[in-house]
Simulated scan of single mutants.
Amino acid sequence: MAAKARSGLSLRASQHEATHRRILDAAVASLVEAGTAATTTVAVQNRAGVSRGALLHHFPTHAELLAATVDELVRRNEGAARDALAAHTDIVDPIDRATRALADAFAQPAYLAELELWAVARTDQQLRAGLRAVESRARRDLERVVGDLFGSLREHPAYATAAALTIEFVRGLALAGVLRSNRAHRNRLLEEWVRVVRFLFDQKSAAWISPSTSKTGKAIND
């Protein structure tokens, strides 16, 4: 009897999780394909093929539904970054390779959908509150992915500054690409940015002295 009860609970939990996933997948698909304005609760309900009651049980408000998509969008963006890095194995320079991989990932619809959510949150207090709850996790995930793209350069004293600036640069490049699709211009900007980052790394290498090392190169504590 107890085993049968546990089996019933397990089945209900599985069904609950499957419905939750179906709604979330429908919301993400709508965001990517149609944008935030078209991703209404009714549109998501129809895409997911669930009842109104089921949707509201899992996501009581529209803002909660949209905020919940961020984790999935971040997961897709991480996959896009790794795919882009694999596609640039012919590029020897790690700075060039990391920058282009990140730029390609940020140009994908899933990342643009994530940016659109942040933009809409500017005037939507409920959505802004929901996004704040997941923003720190999304930022940590992005920082981890960028660190993986730059590889051993993470140990360089210029890395933190270079990574932060590169994120801002490719984010702007992605937004500009929505209105202007000029690959030659985009490539020129990427080439110039790689030069800037390489210069930053070179300057830091020349100027930086390890806190534990004297000017003679001998460890201070020796």
Rank of each mutant, 00 (worst) to 15 (best):
M1E: 11
K4S: 14
K4F: 11
A5V: 09
A5R: 08
A5L: 09
R6L: 12
G8R: 06
L11I: 12
R12L: 09
S14C: 13
S14K: 13
E17R: 11
H20T: 04
R22L: 10
R22D: 09
L24Q: 00
A27D: 15
A37S: 13
T39S: 04
V42T: 14
V44T: 06
V44K: 07
R47S: 15
V50G: 01
A54Y: 02
L55Q: 03
H58K: 10
H58S: 09
L65C: 04
T69A: 07
G79L: 09
A80P: 10
A81V: 03
H88C: 15
D90I: 09
I91R: 07
V92K: 15
I95G: 06
I95D: 04
R97E: 05
A98R: 03
A98W: 08
T99M: 09
R100S: 04
D104H: 10
Q108H: 00
A110Y: 14
A110V: 15
Y111V: 13
Y111I: 14
L112Q: 10
E114I: 06
E116R: 06
W118S: 13
V120K: 02
A121L: 04
A121T: 04
E135C: 05
R137D: 11
A138R: 05
A138E: 02
R139L: 13
R139G: 04
R139A: 06
E143A: 11
V145R: 07
V145F: 06
V146D: 00
V146E: 00
D148I: 15
F150M: 01
S152D: 12
L153G: 07
H156C: 00
A158Q: 02
Y159H: 02
A160W: 12
A160Y: 01
A162I: 05
L165D: 04
I167N: 12
E168P: 00
E168R: 02
F169I: 03
F169M: 06
V170G: 07
L173Y: 09
L173M: 13
G177R: 04
V178Y: 04
N182S: 02
R183F: 02
A184W: 02
N187H: 00
N187Y: 00
L190F: 06
E191R: 15
R195K: 10
R195H: 09
L200W: 14
F201M: 01
Q203S: 12
K204S: 14
A206R: 09
W208K: 12
I209T: 14
P211S: 09
K215T: 08
K215A: 10
A219E: 13
D222A: 14
